Amino acid sequence: IRKQWHEDITQDLRNHLVHKLVQAIFPTPDPAALKDRRMENLVAYARKVEGDMYESANNRAEYYHLLAEKIYKIQKELEEKRRT
């Protein structure tokens, strides 16, 4: 379902936000690492998460909020795993 606010969101912005999700899960300073085949699954997962939020959000603010919440949860989980 195409929503009115979707018209304001460019593909570049969506790609940028997918990249932010990927960085939250696997922070790497090396952009070449993103071309690694093992990263493809991670990028696919991040695209799916972003797509789900894009579809479920009712406006741009909610879209950003859902993504920020997801990134926060991912970082929290990773922190907890590092501690144990």
Rank of each mutant, 00 (worst) to 15 (best):
Q4M: 09
L66H: 00
H16L: 10
K35T: 13
Y63T: 01
K3Q: 03
F26L: 15
P31Q: 11
L17R: 01
P31S: 12
Y64G: 05
A46N: 02
E50M: 01
E69H: 15
I1S: 08
I9H: 00
R60N: 02
E62P: 03
D52C: 11
R60E: 12
Y45W: 15
H19I: 04
Y54K: 06
E7N: 09
M53T: 09
A61S: 09
Q11L: 05
L13Q: 11
I74D: 03
A68T: 13
K70Y: 12
L34A: 11
D12I: 04
W5N: 08
E69A: 06
I1Q: 07
K73Q: 14
F26M: 15
Q75P: 04
H65G: 11
N15F: 00
R37C: 12
K73T: 12
D12R: 02
P27K: 07
E79P: 14
M53R: 01
V22W: 00
D30M: 08
G51A: 14
R83I: 13
K73D: 14
E80N: 11
P31Y: 08
N15P: 04
N41D: 15
N58I: 07
A33V: 07
R60A: 15
K3Y: 00
E62L: 02
V49D: 06
I74A: 14
D36R: 05
R38D: 15
L17M: 15
Q23P: 00
Y63P: 01
A68W: 10
K20Q: 11
K48F: 00
N58V: 03
Y72D: 14
P31L: 09
L34E: 14
I9R: 00
Q75T: 11
L13Y: 06
R37K: 09
K70F: 10
K3M: 05
K73V: 14
R14E: 03
N15Y: 03
E40R: 07
A61Y: 05
V43R: 05
I71Y: 01
R14A: 00
K73R: 11
R14D: 00
I25H: 15
Y45M: 12
R47F: 02
H16K: 14
Y72T: 15
L78F: 10
R38E: 14
E55H: 07
I1R: 05
H16P: 00
L13W: 09
R38F: 07
G51L: 12
E50R: 04
R60Y: 08
D52M: 15
I74E: 06
N41G: 10
A44W: 00
A32K: 14
D52I: 03
I25E: 04
E79I: 10
M39G: 08
L67G: 05
E40I: 01
A61P: 10
Q4H: 14
K76S: 11
H16E: 15
A46S: 01
A33Y: 12
M53I: 14
G51W: 04
L34K: 12
P29Y: 15
E69S: 06
A33H: 10
L13N: 08
K73W: 09
